[in-house]
Design a protein around this nucleic acid. Structure first.
Lengths: 122, 122
DNA sequence: CGGGATCCCCATAGATACTG
DNA sequence: CAGTATCTATGGGGATCCCG
């Protein structure tokens, strides 16, 4: 048996995950929702540097990807809440790992990424 | 003490990590190198759908970010090898986690991502 | 309050061709 | 074999305005 090139299993999975997290605010949004920030206006207050449109776009994508669910309350004024789905919840540990690696190497990384990362939320 | 908005620790780290992995082929390249595929020509054979230029660009970025090191052998024909740095090696478990999540939910994800993901290496 | 629609910029990355 | 220069296309994301 040949070594089957690169372990497809290794590459593909991470590509899928990257695809799901692809978008400037997605991981942040998931973190927000996980913390109980469920309404669009609250998220916007959380992330002042993100435009409303982009938030909407990315929330739609997250919803479409099955990571979050959207509840519309037919009230006045309008009210919307987002919640994590099981799939979304299962992604949290992954984000947490990325989180920890990023924090562990923050010093080195910020030096090198300087300029690319204008505004970190914090 | 107020709750300090969103846990900065949670968001920032993952943003840094995402930034480092940002690029179509980066995680794949890291996986390649980790598996002992160290020469550009070999990587290109591995990833026929990636152009030479893009691979070079992304390898440069990885190098600049301190994840890999580049060794140039002053021979003829030219020979170059890339190796993981300690920082790069430390990122492998993270990729592995992303990998596993992606594989675990492959079925659901591929349905939804259909179209976005044209060609998975595998 | 929540959500489009439109316009515009720029970074990513593909194709191609050329140099050491 | 390795790397670079141009040109181009695509799409992510910012700003702004308007509608339920």
């Amino acid at each position: 048996m040949y070594q089957k090139k690169i372990a497809n299993t290794l590459t593909c999975g991470s590509v899928l995950t990257k695809e799901v997290l692809h978008g400037k605010w997605k991981s942040t949004l998931l973190a927000c929702i996980a913390q109980g920030i469920q309404r669009p206006s609250a998220m916007q207050r959380m992330l002042p540097s993100a435009s409303r449109r982009v938030l909407n776009v990315q929330l739609s994508e997250l919803e479409h990807h099955g990571l979050i669910s959207k509840t519309i309350f037919p009230e006045l004024p309008p009210k919307v809440e987002y919640h994590l789905t099981d799939l979304g919840r299962s992604l949290l540990p992954v984000i947490e790992v990325m989180e920890q690696w990023g924090n562990a190497h923050r010093t080195e990384l910020e030096q090198v990424l300087a300029g690319n990362i204008a505004e970190l939320p914090g």
